[in-house]
């Protein structure tokens, strides 16, 4: 007994330290999570606040003093074209994603594999194209859109957005294709497949993280792009979210805060969920694209 009590527990000190460190770590993570989420929390709370509650001096934005109301959601869905904006944005987004993949997948593969040193240079050139900002291009592009008779038509956006998304996606995918050993393609050729089949069955599945990155990047681009959307489309029923919401829910200097925030939140939630679902692959995608090539 005596020896037992005399021996200090060797794990006692370090264990306490470990618990302390764990608690500190968790607290810090929770704090930053809350910090990052707070704008969305405020948006969620404000959506259901009455006007009096929202504009009351000294009131907390996280709390209700009056009864929460659905009035503003009703207003957003029934008195504005919000649903048609969502539909337009979705249609444009999906179409642009498809066009981007169809163009950038073969381009990136070719640049990564078939042209050797010229591939590098061509890839560099494409990236430079990506660096030209839309604010410089929208005037000449507007004239082209008018000549094509595509004003107030979603096709104008579907045609122009790839000018931003294709160079970036090609560059990103190039890094991916370069990281896939050419021997895998050759093995598929020897195993009895054509080059096209080898690409489809071996290269594409391995480049999936890159493809997901491209889809997410391109889709969010079409969601938030403003200048082209504002310039090419002026008819309210053809507008997309990025221009429709601010034009309908801001009149002069009056901001209809509750529906405005609700409209943003409703779009942000699904996009956020998708981002989280693919977070690991996205990070892998962007870092790979950044390091390679």
């Amino acid at each position: 007994m005596a020896t037992l009590t005399a021996t200090p527990t060797p794990a006692g000190g370090p264990r306490l330290l470990r618990v302390l460190r764990g608690t500190l770590y968790t607290t810090a993570v929770l704090f930053f999570c809350l910090l990052a989420a707070s704008p969305f929390l405020v948006m969620g709370v404000v959506t259901f606040q009455t006007d009096q509650d929202l504009y009351r001096r000294g009131a907390s934005p996280f709390d209700y003093e009056d009864m929460p109301t659905l009035e503003h959601l009703d207003n957003l869905f029934n008195d504005t074209r919000y649903l048609s904006f969502v539909r337009n944005s979705t249609v444009t987004g999906i179409a642009v994603v498809v066009v981007t993949l169809v163009l950038s997948l073969p381009a990136a593969w070719a640049l990564a594999r078939l042209t050797g040193r010229w591939g590098e240079r061509a890839g560099m050139l494409m990236f430079i194209v990506y660096l030209v900002p839309p604010t410089l291009l929208f005037i000449p592009l507007f004239r082209i859109i008018v000549q094509l008779g595509l004003r107030d038509n979603l096709l104008s956006l579907i045609l122009v957005y790839p000018s931003i998304s294709v160079p970036f996606s090609t560059w990103l995918l190039m890094g991916f294709f370069k990281s896939i050993p050419p021997e895998l393609e050759e093995a598929a050729l020897v195993d009895g497949f054509t080059r096209y089949e080898a690409f489809w069955r071996v290269v594409l599945p391995l480049a999936r993280p890159g493809i997901i990155s491209v889809v997410v990047f391109t889709f969010t681009l079409t969601l938030h792009e403003f200048i082209y959307s504002l310039v090419f489309i002026s008819a309210s029923e053809v507008r997309t979210l990025s221009t429709g919401v601010p034009t309908e829910l801001i009149r002069g200097d009056v901001f209809f805060w509750q529906p405005l925030l609700a409209s943003a939140l409703l779009v942000a939630i699904p996009v956020g969920l998708v981002y989280n679902l693919f977070l690991d692959r996205l990070v892998q995608g962007f870092t790979l694209g950044a390091v390679k090539g």
Binding site: P181, E183, L184, E186, A187, A188, L189, V190, D191, G192, F193, T194, V202, L206
Partner: peptide, 18 residues
């Protein structure tokens, strides 16, 4: 092309499809 030659090959890196 390779697929019409009736050959099979084992690569140095094995080139297994991951």
């Amino acid at each position: 092309p390779p697929r019409k030659r009736g050959i099979a090959m084992v690569f140095q890196s094995y080139a297994l499809y991951p």
